[in-house]
Computed example of a mutant assay.
Amino acid sequence: MTASGRPRVLLMHPILDPGPAILAEAAEVNAYPSNRPLDQQSIREAAEGCFGIVSHLKDPIGPVVLSTPGLKCVSNVAVGFDNIDIPTATSNRVMVTNTPGVLDESTADFAFALLIAAARRVVQADTYTRQGNYKGWEIDLMLGTDVHDATLGIVGIGRIGRGVARRAKGFNMRVLYSDTNPLVPEMEQQLGATHVDLSRLLAESDFISVHVPLTKETHHLISTAQFAHMKPNAILVNTSRGPVVDEAALVEALKAHRIAGAGLDVYEREPAVHPGLIALHNVVLAPHIASATTRTRSEMSAMAARNMATAVRGGKPPNLLNPDVRK
Score class of each variant (00 low, 15 high):
207 F>T: 01
7 P>W: 02
204 E>V: 02
258 R>S: 08
318 P>D: 14
315 G>K: 11
255 K>L: 00
23 L>G: 02
149 D>Q: 10
222 I>H: 08
288 H>Y: 11
78 A>R: 06
12 M>D: 04
215 T>M: 11
16 L>S: 14
37 P>E: 02
82 D>M: 08
15 I>M: 07
54 V>Y: 11
30 N>L: 11
152 L>A: 00
173 M>L: 07
319 N>D: 14
184 V>I: 11
11 L>D: 02
299 E>K: 11
114 L>P: 12
144 G>V: 01
197 D>W: 11
69 P>Y: 11
135 K>R: 14
234 A>C: 07
197 D>V: 13
28 E>K: 03
53 I>E: 05
249 A>Q: 02
103 L>F: 06
29 V>R: 09
238 N>E: 15
293 T>D: 10
135 K>A: 09
75 S>C: 03
282 N>T: 01
147 V>K: 09
71 L>T: 05
123 V>H: 04
306 R>A: 00
176 L>C: 05
262 A>R: 07
16 L>K: 15
212 V>A: 00
230 M>Q: 09
251 V>D: 03
275 P>C: 06
166 R>E: 09
105 E>G: 02
36 R>F: 03
176 L>W: 05
166 R>A: 00
274 H>N: 12
45 E>M: 10
263 G>L: 06
293 T>F: 10
148 H>P: 05
57 L>V: 15
238 N>G: 12
319 N>F: 10
205 S>N: 00
261 G>T: 11
68 T>L: 08
292 A>Y: 14
31 A>L: 14
290 A>F: 13
173 M>Q: 07
10 L>A: 09
14 P>E: 15
256 A>C: 08
173 M>C: 11
98 N>E: 06
254 L>C: 04
320 L>F: 04
174 R>F: 03
238 N>I: 15
312 V>M: 05
4 S>Y: 03
203 A>R: 12
179 D>F: 13
326 R>K: 07
316 K>T: 15
219 H>F: 00
136 G>F: 04
17 D>V: 01
115 L>T: 14
229 H>P: 02
283 V>R: 08
106 S>V: 10
180 T>P: 09
273 V>L: 12
298 S>E: 10
158 G>W: 03
313 R>T: 10
51 F>M: 06
74 V>E: 02
38 L>Y: 09
244 V>R: 00
